[in-house]
């Protein structure tokens, strides 16, 4: 069953640009340019794209904050803007840089307030809060006013706040932005746990691809308001030809880089004592065997494809033109 449906979803903004001393020109900017997506219950969807690609705009249309210019969206079978308050009871939203919490009140009081705002039965509220307290380690700062919390602590509070009414869908806009490594791990671990339970659908926008690698089986890449990839991370690698690398450390440099079938040399480093091969058709064993005949191997390591690099290449090729067919 689809929890989220987007059909030709589109959002245009009119911006006024100064064009001379007094003259102003209206210009239309398309932030989201015809997005079709289906998200099933329990899916964890990573939504990535460069700045201004339309990620947050999409999320705002799905949560009822913005009205689509064209196309339509359904979340939990409801129309986000028209059925805003009914939908609000069934979704949770975390805007990474904006707070849902009460700045001057202890975290605990914010949670209590949200219970009234969302009209959650006391028992269910207490049960969910207990679970969040355990998983997110909230106890140490539950009585601290929000304004005194660190960003990481606050984000853990925001997550809890978004989940206390037991939403079916959780929308997260940049949940790890600005967090330190430890807090990032805590947030990711918590979301992974949430995903494992399987009854919450998760839609996550992020700049940090590590979030995606850790959490999302499905990845949607958006650029210039259009979906350019929709599928698993492995599929992304396959489609855009990202390859594993073999890094070989040699005792001494070879007179010239060796030619191994199916594994071209990518880089020569450390005065020729470190060689990087891309695995195209050859296997790791074949590369090692081929090298062993030519030089003394000191060390060998395998580097998994870097999603960041793939995405960078993806954006770059999108900009150049339709070298690649957009995703389904």
């Amino acid at each position: 069953m689809n929890v989220i449906e987007m059909d030709g979803l589109r959002k245009e903004f009119t911006v006024r640009v100064r064009a001379g001393v007094l003259r102003r020109e209206k210009r239309t900017v398309t932030a989201v340019d015809g997005v079709d997506l289906r998200v099933e219950r329990g899916e964890m969807l990573g939504y990535i794209g460069p700045n201004g690609a339309g990620k947050s705009t999409t999320l705002k249309m799905l949560t009822g904050v913005l009205m689509p210019s064209a196309g339509q969206a359904r979340v939990c079978g409801l129309r986000p803007v028209a059925d805003r308050t009914r939908l609000a009871l069934r979704i949770g939203v975390v805007f990474g840089q904006r707070s849902q919490l009460w700045w001057d009140l202890p975290l605990r009081e914010s949670f209590d307030l949200l219970r009234h705002v969302y009209r959650v039965p006391a028992g269910a509220h207490a049960a969910r809060l207990t679970r969040c307290r355990e998983l997110l380690d909230l106890d140490a700062f539950l009585d601290t006013p929000v304004r005194q919390l660190s960003l990481g602590q606050r984000m853990r509070g925001e997550l809890t706040a978004a989940l206390l009414h037991g939403p079916e869908v959780l929308f997260l806009d940049e949940p790890t932005i600005g967090l330190d490594v430890v807090s990032k791990q805590a947030v990711r671990g918590f979301l992974a746990e949430l995903g494992r339970a399987g009854d919450t659908t998760l839609v996550l926008t992020t700049h940090d691809l590590a979030d995606i690698e850790r959490l999302c089986r499905r990845l949607v890449v958006i650029d210039h308001g259009r979906v350019v990839h929709d599928g698993s991370i492995a599929e992304l690698h396959r489609r855009y030809g990202s390859r594993r690398m073999v890094v070989a450390e040699l005792d001494s440099a070879l007179p010239e880089p060796p030619v191994l079938p199916g594994a071209p040399v990518q880089r020569v480093e450390a005065d020729g004592r470190r060689l990087v091969f891309a695995l195209e058709r050859a296997s790791v064993a074949e590369v090692v065997a081929g090298l062993a005949g030519l030089a003394t191997l000191r060390d060998i390591s395998i580097v998994e494809p870097d999603i960041e690099e793939v995405v960078t290449r993806l954006y770059a090729s999108e900009r150049k033109g339709p070298l690649l067919t957009p995703g389904v």
């Binding site: 009822g64 904050v65 939203v93 805007f95 904006r98 969302y118």
Partner: peptide, 14 residues
């Protein structure tokens, strides 16, 4: 500007 307006819009109240 501070996003309070958006925050209010995702809650189940006017």
């Amino acid at each position: 500007r501070t996003g309070l307006f958006d925050a209010v819009l995702v809650r189940p109240l006017a």
